[in-house]
Computed example of a mutant assay.
Amino acid sequence: MEVKFFTPTREYAEKKDEFDKAIQSVLNSGNFIMGRQVTDFEDAIKEYTGAKYAVSVASGTDALVITSDILGFKNGREVITSPFTFLASTSCIAKGCAKPVFVDIDEDTFNIDAEKIEEKINANTVGILPIHLFSQMSNMDKIMDLASRNHLRVLEDAAEAFGMKWKGKNSALYRHSGTIGDMGIFSFFPTKTLGGYGDGGMIVTNDARLAEMAKMFRVHGASKKYHYDYLGYNSRLDTIQAAVLSVKLKYIDEAIEKRAKVSDWYKERLNDCDYIKIPDIKGEQKPVYYVFNILAQNRDELAAYLKQNNIGTSIYYPIPLHLQKCFDYLGHKKGDFPVAEKVSKEILALPIYPEITEDEVDFVCTAIKNFYKK
Rank of each mutant, 00 (worst) to 15 (best):
Val3Leu: 06
Lys4Trp: 04
Ala13Asn: 12
Val26Arg: 06
Met34Phe: 03
Gly35Phe: 01
Thr39Ser: 15
Thr39Trp: 06
Asp40Lys: 09
Asp43Val: 11
Leu71Val: 03
Asn75Lys: 14
Gly76Trp: 02
Arg77Asn: 12
Ile80Ala: 11
Phe84Ala: 10
Ser91Trp: 01
Ser91Glu: 14
Lys95Gly: 05
Cys97Ala: 15
Asp113Gln: 10
Asp113Asn: 15
Ala114Val: 04
Ile117Asp: 05
Ala123Trp: 03
Asn124Asp: 10
Pro130Leu: 01
Met137Glu: 04
Met140Val: 03
Ile143Ser: 04
His151Arg: 12
Leu155Arg: 07
Glu160Gln: 13
Trp166His: 14
Gly168Phe: 09
Gly168Ser: 11
Lys169Ala: 15
Tyr174Glu: 09
Gly178Ala: 06
Thr179Pro: 08
Ile185Leu: 08
Phe189Val: 07
Lys192Ser: 03
Leu194Met: 04
Tyr197His: 13
Asp199Lys: 12
Asn206Gly: 08
Leu210Thr: 00
Phe217Cys: 05
Ala222Leu: 02
Lys224Phe: 11
Lys225His: 09
Tyr233Gln: 03
Arg236Ile: 15
Ile240Cys: 09
Ala243Ile: 08
Val244Phe: 06
Val247Gly: 04
Ile256Tyr: 04
Arg259Phe: 08
Ala260Pro: 01
Leu270Gln: 01
Cys273Gly: 02
Tyr275His: 14
Ile276Pro: 05
Ile276His: 01
Lys286Arg: 15
Glu301Lys: 15
Gln308Trp: 00
Tyr317Ile: 15
Pro318Ala: 08
Leu323Tyr: 10
Leu330Lys: 04
Phe337Trp: 00
Val339Phe: 00
Val343Gly: 06
Val361His: 03
Cys365Leu: 10
Thr366Gln: 15
Phe371Lys: 07
